[in-house]
Simulated assay, not measured.
Amino acid sequence: MRAVAPAAASAFDPLIAETVLRGLTAPRKTLPPHLLYDPEGCRLFEAITTLPEYYVTRTELALLKRVGPELRAHVGRGASVVEYGAGSATKAALLLSALEAPAAYVPLDIAEGAVRASAREIRARFPGVAVHPQVCDFNGRIALPLLPAPLLGFFPGSTIGNLDTGAALDFLRAVRASLGQGARFLVGVDLPKSPDVLVPAYDDAAGVTAAFNMNLLHRLNREAAADFNLAGFAHQAVWNAAESRIEMHLRSLAAQTVSVAGESVRFEAGETIHTENSYKRAPEAFQAMAQETGWRSEAVWQDPEGLFSLHLLAA
């Protein structure tokens, strides 16, 4: 029996189909990671953040709580917070609670449901904070509303690790341009560590990360007019030491042909679709990237176990 999305859920998107065909007909099959985050993908990712193997979220939350007073002193009173890749409002709420009389909050993300939910929660918890949700690709050109200064960008969860070096540099430049001179940028950056810790964080025993990755094929069946047989693919997480990154792949279990928007795509047995990277960058490596893009490192904090870091950059 073919495990495909129900026909009633069909919502063909020609732009997604074009993106998918371009990625799957490249010499090495690769898809952009934002395709992982449809509503079901967002739900599964939130479940991932609570798993015992996934140290990132709990470590970053503990670090945010610890450094709150120092952060407040750096940022000053009445800040406007711009969150790139807003999902759960938990971290944004923790940051807003740490700041002195925050004035505004702008959640940005391509996933409309996540942005709206985050905006609702922040409005309920912080009635004195003006909330301006924006549904957009935060890697693209962003026109921010007129906001009270000082501005504080916020990019938690080591999401910057999903960008390769060139894309990360472009993103840091774009954020600096949109936030402007005098702004600050708080960025969560995961640290290099043993594969014994890293690989289980992206291939958990309960199979939630596998379901998150495999859900991409459900989405392609629904929105790119594809006919992936989910039983013919498996989730794979590997540590690429040379690139200092965890890679997520979907591995074809046999030679097969898949149709996408009427075009045939051939898979060899063992061939993969590369769906996401998560780079792990040492503090000095990330500081060098920030400096190259016009930011100045103002503070760096790490948890006691050396798992995760928070960087405060100044424009």
Score class of each variant (00 low, 15 high):
Ala7Tyr: 12
Ser10Tyr: 11
Ala17Lys: 03
Glu18Gly: 13
Arg22Leu: 09
Thr25Gln: 13
Pro27Tyr: 12
Arg28Trp: 13
Lys29His: 08
Arg43Ala: 10
Leu51Ala: 06
Leu51Asp: 09
Pro52Asp: 14
Pro52Tyr: 11
Glu53Val: 02
Glu53Asp: 12
Tyr54Phe: 15
Thr57Tyr: 07
Glu60Ser: 01
Leu63Ile: 03
Lys65Ala: 15
Gly68Arg: 03
Glu70Phe: 11
Glu70Trp: 13
Arg72Trp: 10
Arg72Asn: 11
His74Ser: 14
Gly76Arg: 10
Gly78Met: 03
Ser80Val: 06
Val81Asp: 05
Gly85Cys: 00
Gly85Leu: 00
Ser88His: 01
Ala92Cys: 10
Leu94Arg: 12
Leu95Pro: 00
Leu95Gln: 02
Ser97Ala: 14
Ala98Phe: 11
Ala98Ser: 15
Glu100Arg: 15
Ala101Cys: 14
Pro102Gly: 01
Ala103Cys: 05
Ala104Pro: 01
Tyr105Cys: 00
Pro107Lys: 03
Asp109Leu: 00
Asp109Gln: 00
Gly113Asp: 08
Ala114Phe: 00
Ala117Tyr: 00
Ser118Leu: 00
Arg123Lys: 13
Ala124Ile: 01
Arg125Leu: 15
Pro127Leu: 02
Val129Lys: 01
His132Asn: 05
Pro133Glu: 00
Pro133Ser: 06
Gln134Trp: 01
Val135Cys: 09
Val135Ser: 05
Phe138Trp: 02
Asn139Asp: 12
Ile142Trp: 02
Leu147Ala: 06
Pro148Glu: 14
Pro148Phe: 07
Ala149Glu: 14
Pro150Ser: 06
Pro150Ala: 06
Leu151Ala: 08
Leu152Gln: 01
Gly153Pro: 07
Phe154Arg: 00
Pro156Asp: 10
Gly157Asp: 04
Gly161Asp: 09
Asn162Glu: 10
Leu163Met: 12
Thr165Gly: 13
Gly166Ile: 13
Ala167Cys: 07
Ala168Pro: 15
Val175Asp: 08
Val175Ser: 08
Val175Glu: 06
Arg176Trp: 12
Leu179Ala: 09
Gly180Leu: 13
Arg184Ile: 05
Arg184His: 13
Arg184Cys: 10
Val189Cys: 08
Val189Lys: 13
Lys193Phe: 09
Ser194Thr: 04
Val197Gln: 08
Val197Thr: 09
Val197Lys: 09
Leu198Met: 11
Leu198Thr: 09
Ala206Asp: 07
Asn213Glu: 11
Asn215Trp: 05
Ala224Glu: 07
Ala225Glu: 10
Ala226His: 02
Gly232Tyr: 02
His235Ile: 08
Gln236Thr: 09
Ala237Ile: 08
Trp239Ala: 11
Trp239Phe: 14
Asn240Gly: 03
Asn240Ala: 12
Ala242Ser: 15
His249Val: 03
Leu250Thr: 01
Arg251Asn: 03
Leu253His: 09
Ala254Thr: 10
Ala254Phe: 11
Thr257Lys: 13
Glu263His: 13
Ala269Cys: 04
Gly270Asn: 04
His274Gly: 05
His274Met: 02
His274Lys: 11
Thr275Leu: 05
Asn277Met: 04
Ser278Gly: 10
Lys280His: 12
Arg281Met: 13
Glu284Arg: 15
Phe286Lys: 07
Ala290Phe: 02
Glu292Val: 13
Thr293Gly: 03
Gly294Gln: 06
Ser297Ile: 11
Ser297Cys: 15
Glu298Tyr: 02
Val300Thr: 14
Glu305Asp: 13
Glu305Gln: 14
Ser309Leu: 14
Leu310His: 04
His311Pro: 02
Ala314Asn: 06
